[in-house]
Design a protein around this nucleic acid. Structure first.
Length: 807
DNA sequence: ATAGGGTTAG
């Protein structure tokens, strides 16, 4: 860019040097055209040249106009290009082809097709067809591209090597196994193009892309690609890079390296491909080693190299190294490419400097969509969800990724309703839904425990063919797991074409959370047998599975091997799980011992786990000790009061329990929302309060308010579990939580009269509750349970389940 | 005027 820009600038100053004005403009534009690299200054230069034309009253002829349109298209001036094009009375095929390519590049093949359709057959040519076919394949519509290719043949236009390369690219979008590739290969041979270099390159590229399909055997396909490569009589730069990147993309860095080492003159692109391969694999030091070797080979890192290295630094948390790369770029480059800036933004926020990331963004003269998305991810990644939403609303243009980041940001921060609302808006705006968007929406359903909505999304996912998506699959496992539909979670896991660590962790968690501790452990062991290395999340889930299943020794074992075998330092959360494991099993002194000997200062979660154990095992003294620590650490936390009061209540010390409640009120501690009330006669009504607008629920609300007032008069602070125990004494009214896990606990605690009916009125809630309902049916000795979800109901009687509609 | 390789946002 630099040279062309300088030349144009000089020629702008020396207008007198040029013979005719038209020639002068033509030269300027040609200079700009030569540099195809996209840069921020190019746009400003076209604007100024175009501006000069207008002010000097120059009326460009078609070839200059076409060139102007072309440059606008390539330098983010689509709107100007469109404006110019629309004012041409009878645009020639060159102008049309330019604008077709531009519309396609901007992601709008429909608009491109309109122009294409309006192009009379008499002026259409092969190039015009090529542009449209490429447009389709760039927009992932392989079928449309092939259809147009057939149409072209039908209308007797002669395809050339450009046509073949484009059509092969389109076919690569659809082909996904050996058979397809073989057929294609035959077709190319039949077409007589099999000796044309660029067509062979495209064919190699098809093999490579096919190899990364989850259902193909990548080794076989890569072998075919490599055979083609070595059989070529003459290889160009592209042939080399295609095969190298092919190996890189198919996770065979050694093979890639072998080909790379065989290159006489190593191209910058090839170096970059190797470096990015190492970066993606997390081999940061190999990547840096390559950078050094490349440097000694006399090649200067370009923006591709730098962005790769910066992104490696961001992932590895190598902030200082990243800064050095930045300093290097600043020293050597006159104009820093926007992608380098974007990688820098990511470096900052991933190293915990969100505000600095924002500052980099604010100072950018030229921002693209990726820059905006990087800042959006920064806010989301830091959990600063409100700022993220404000930023999201400010965005001048949002692509599917921006929507997706925002949706999953809401979901991950517990704002399921906002997430689903946004997902619907995304639909209404006609933004193309990708698998990640579905993953975000399904995660919100997991958060909201909205089983029905989640199932609908699952159906739509299958309809759209996203069911092979890793991220969507993982979201589904988590969703079904949280909803208690373990079989569905398992089915998703088993039918996924490929799974990763997240999938394993999600299924282990699902099993562990719902009382299938032994199965969770079995799965964890199976994962180890398949040589998949567990991460810190895996240990969190497997230890808590042990905890729920009461498998203390097994849990301790996992805690120990985490560091001794897998070199993962246990974090606070792991200690909290270990203490929970011991406390639940009643080994309270051991738990206390762990707290006192752990390497860091024990935080609130450890003491809370101990206190919960004290409540269950009725150890008042130790409970009080733990509670005192908690009052110091988190004085305003309602959970401590509730747990302590329960500890007293469990030990039958009702007066002390009442004192704790009074203390809580005196300290001005507010209880968190999320629980509702039930009334027991012979029937238990469980009203879940998510949908307060529902008339039935509203009526109950009023009743509950009355109840609360009454209780306050009696000196109680109404709350979830300890009120339950108090009320139990009266055998009349119960408090209950809406949370499915707590609901299970409460069902377990209730001592209902034999033969009682439990009616669970639910809205927006889950079958997980049904699942718990069945599980605890024996405990509550109820003969039937009716779970209602809006108009639907599930009816359990004597272990049988039926469901239907209420009206 | 059209194709084809390397980068950055989840």
């Amino acid at each position: 860019m630099k040279n062309a820009a300088a030349a144009v600038k000089t020629s702008l100053l020396n207008q007198s040097d040029t013979r005719t004005i038209a020639n002068f403009y033509a030269v300027q534009l040609q200079l700009l055209c030569r540099e195809k690299k996209y840069a921020s200054s190019a746009f400003a230069l076209v604007r100024s040249i175009h501006g000069n034309m207008i002010t000097s009253g120059f009326r460009p002829r078609s070839h200059i106009l076409n060139r102007l349109i072309d440059i606008y298209c390539k330098n983010s001036g689509l709107a100007y290009a469109k404006h110019l094009f629309d004012r041409i009375p009878q645009p020639d095929v060159v102008a049309r082809t330019t604008i077709i390519a531009a519309y396609s590049a901007s992601g709008d093949p429909k608009l491109a097709r309109e122009v294409f359709n309006k192009t009379p057959l008499s002026i259409r040519d092969t190039v015009c067809y090529n542009a449209m076919i490429t447009g389709y394949s760039h927009n992932n519509d392989g079928h449309a591209a092939i259809k147009l290719f057939l149409d072209m043949r039908w209308k007797s236009f002669q395809p050339d090597e450009y046509t073949y390369t484009s059509v092969l690219a389109a076919l690569a979008l659809i082909a996904d196994h050996e058979m397809h590739c073989g057929q294609l290969h035959c077709a190319v041979v039949k077409s007589g193009m099999a000796s044309v270099k660029c067509v062979v390159n495209a064919l190699i590229s098809v093999y490579v892309k096919c190899a990364s399909s989850p259902i193909a055997s990548s080794v076989v396909l890569m072998d075919s690609a490599s055979k083609l490569f070595y059989e070529m009589s003459e290889r160009d730069d592209l042939s080399w890079t295609t095969i190298i990147t092919g190996y890189v993309k198919n996770d065979d860095l050694d093979a890639a390296r072998k080909v790379f080492d065989g290159m006489d003159e190593k191209l910058l692109v090839a170096w970059n491909a190797m470096i990015s391969g190492y970066v993606h694999k997390g081999f940061i030091f190999e990547a840096l080693d390559m950078l050094r070797k490349m440097h000694s080979a006399g090649l200067k890192p370009d923006e591709f190299t730098c962005t790769s290295i910066l992104s490696a630094c961001a992932d590895a948390g190598l902030f200082l190294l990243g800064k050095q790369v930045h300093a290097y770029v600043r020293r050597t480059e006159e104009e820093i490419h926007v992608s380098v800036h974007n990688a820098l933004i990511t470096l900052y926020w991933k190293c915990g400097r969100v505000d600095e990331a924002r500052k980099v963004f604010d100072n950018l003269a030229f921002k693209d969509l990726v820059s905006w998305n990087a800042v959006l991810s920064a806010y989301v990644g830091a959990g600063r969800i409100n700022e993220a939403k404000l930023f999201f609303d400010e965005m001048p243009e949002k692509n599917s990724l921006a929507w997706t980041v925002m949706i999953s940001g809401f979901a991950q921060n517990g704002k399921g309703e906002e997430a689903l609302k946004l997902f619907n808006q995304m639909r209404l705006h006609g933004i193309e839904l990708c698998d990640y968007a579905f993953a975000g929406a399904i995660t919100s359903c997991a958060v909201l425990a909205a089983l029905e909505t989640g199932c609908q999304l699952h159906a739509q996912l299958i309809q759209r063919g996203f069911d092979s998506s890793l991220s969507a699959g993982n979201a589904l496992i988590t969703f079904y797991g949280r909803s208690g539909v373990i079989e569905a979670a398992r089915t998703v896991f088993l039918t996924m074409p490929c799974v990763d660590l997240v999938s394993w962790n999600a299924l282990i968690a699902a099993l562990g959370q719902h009382g299938y501790g032994a199965q969770a452990i079995e799965l964890f062991e199976q994962m180890l047998n398949e040589h998949i290395t567990p991460d810190r999340i895996s240990f969190l889930t497997v230890i808590s599975a042990c905890s729920h299943a009461g498998l203390v020794e097994r849990g301790r074992h996992y805690f120990n091997i985490m560091h001794s075998v897998y070199k993962i330092n246990p974090g606070e959360d792991h200690y909290a799980r270990l203490i929970d494991l011991l406390s639940r099993a009643g080994r309270l002194l051991e738990a206390k011992d762990v707290i006192q000997t752990m390497p860091t200062k024990p935080g609130a979660p450890m003491w809370e786990a101990l206190l919960a154990g004290c409540r269950t095992h009725r150890n008042v003294d130790l409970g009080v000790e733990a509670a005192e620590k908690l009052f110091e650490l988190t004085p305003q936390h309602d959970g401590t009061y509730i747990l302590l009061a329960n500890t007293f209540a469990a030990a039958g010390r009702w007066d002390d329990a009442a004192k704790v409640r009074k203390l809580m009120r005196d300290q001005g501690v507010k209880k968190e929302p999320g629980c509702s009330w039930i009334k027991v006669e012979n029937t238990v009504h469980v009203f879940l309060v998510d949908d307060t607008a529902h008339p039935e629920i509203q009526a109950v609300y009023n009743y509950l308010e009355e109840l609360r007032l009454k209780m306050r008069k009696m000196g109680y602070v109404p709350d979830t579990q300890y009120v339950l125990q108090d009320m139990e004494a009266e055998q009349k009214e119960y408090a209950i939580s809406t949370h499915s896990e707590k609901l299970a606990v409460v069902f377990g605690l209730l001592k209902l009269p034999r033969g009682a009916t439990i009616r669970v009125f639910k809205n927006l809630r889950i079958c997980g509750d049904c699942h718990n309902a069945i599980k605890f049916m024996s405990k509550v000795e109820a003969s039937e349970i009716i779970v209602r979800d809006g108009n639907r109901f599930h009816h359990f009687r004597d272990g049988e389940c039926s469901c239907g509609n209420y009206w």
